[in-house]
Design a protein around this nucleic acid. Structure first.
Length: 362
DNA sequence: TCAATGCACGC
DNA sequence: CCCTTTTGCATTGA
């Protein structure tokens, strides 16, 4: 028997949370912002609600540009990530009760295998999922969009298309007709770069994409991605719904008050992020054996350097190594100015003889 | 095999 | 006209 998979996506999540908690925002454009602290209004839009989107405001655009696009009644709020995380957990705990197996994809997305819950029946799935949406709404005030399909890729696309507050079921026999007319970038994993190279070849829709051989795709995307795209375009990319494994790396990045090539400045401004990253590692019960410096230059290029550390290295030890790494980066080009700086912990090793390395053999 | 880079995707 | 943050993965080049 084929699977029944539901993909749940909380609508414009962060902005929706603000709307739910502040009824006076009703009907107004709401923009949740990541302020970088460099100047007043420097930073980007994290999420915008639908009234704001009508003016062309969306995730990723500069706050300044959003202010120009929107009328005076628009409301700009700073991101409250911890709060959204709490609400997300609440929602996920509800969703979990509706699933045979669930995978939390991100703060606002989850994939549920509901095959047994609905006896493999897509008609039943529609009602079942509608009930789930209602419970989430009653418990939290939040609306979500849900796609139901035989696998997670198609389910995600169905959820995307149904937004906001949507519910779209795509039965097995409907999958091909559902996918064919969609633009190639509807497929998760095909972003702007991949879509652009495909467009150059005249490939615009999933139907067009299906005409390309595995070999052609391989030349465009490399082996792994080609295989994924090949099957995804046919609605046949399938994998079991399994919980997300623990993170393999922890990183923190900050925007510097001003561009600099002074290592002391960089380290001073980065220190809080380092402490924060170490706290996250502690919470994960993980110890890194590598640490990396991430430098973003004034022209927004990214340069990275890594070094080995003693797993469980202290804050001071980490700062010392980071200082060396940033020095290396700056020395490679005397003209470099850093705009942003970050730290990355990776290559985790865990205690008690366990190994996080997948290739580990007893 | 390792280090560095780039793409994707999310908000 | 301005440019945040986090993680995973694949490719590339040595």
């Amino acid at each position: 028997m084929g699977k029944v998979v539901a993909f749940v996506d909380l609508d414009y999540f962060f902005a929706q949370v603000e709307e739910v908690e502040k009824p006076e925002l009703a009907g107004k454009p709401v923009v949740v912002c990541v302020y970088s602290g460099r100047t007043e209004d420097s930073g980007v839009v994290s999420t915008a609600n639908y009234p704001a989107r009508r003016y062309g405001v969306k995730a990723g655009i500069p706050i300044k540009r959003a202010k120009k696009l929107l009328p005076p009644e628009a409301v700009f709020l700073p991101i409250r990530l911890q709060h959204y995380t709490q609400l997300s957990r609440h929602v996920m705990s509800i969703l979990d009760r509706y699933a045979d197996r669930m995978r939390i994809e991100s703060i606002d997305e989850a994939v549920l295998d509901i095959t047994n819950r609905v006896g493999g029946d897509f008609e039943k799935a529609a009602e079942y999922v509608a009930g789930m949406k209602t419970e989430v709404l009653r418990a939290t005030g939040l609306r979500c969009s849900v796609g139901v399909a035989p696998n997670r890729v198609v389910a995600k696309i169905a959820a995307d298309i149904s937004k906001p507050d949507g519910l779209r079921v795509v039965k097995s026999e409907e999958v091909e007709d559902f996918l064919s007319p969609l633009p190639v970038n509807s497929i998760p994993g095909i972003g702007s770069k991949a879509a652009a190279s495909l467009a150059e070849m005249g490939v615009k829709t999933v139907e067009d994409l299906k005409q390309l051989s595995l070999e052609t795709l391989e030349k465009l995307f490399g082996r792994k991605r080609a295989e994924y795209v090949y099957f995804a375009a046919r609605g046949k990319y399938d994998e079991p719904v399994e919980p997300r494994p623990p993170p393999k790396q922890v990183s923190r990045i900050i925007t510097l008050k001003r561009n600099t090539r002074d290592v002391d400045d960089v380290i001073a401004e980065l220190s809080r992020a380092v402490a924060d990253g170490l706290a996250r590692m502690e919470a994960l019960q993980a110890a890194a054996s590598r640490v990396g410096a991430v430098a973003i230059t004034s022209d927004l290029r990214t340069i990275t350097r890594q070094a080995e550390i003693r797993p469980g290295a202290s804050y001071e030890e980490v700062l010392k190594i980071l200082r060396k790494l940033f020095q290396e980066i700056l020395q490679q080009d005397a003209r470099l100015q850093l705009r942003r700086a970050g730290v990355r912990f990776s290559d985790f090793v865990s205690q008690a003889g366990q190994s996080t390395l997948s290739g580990y053999i007893e």
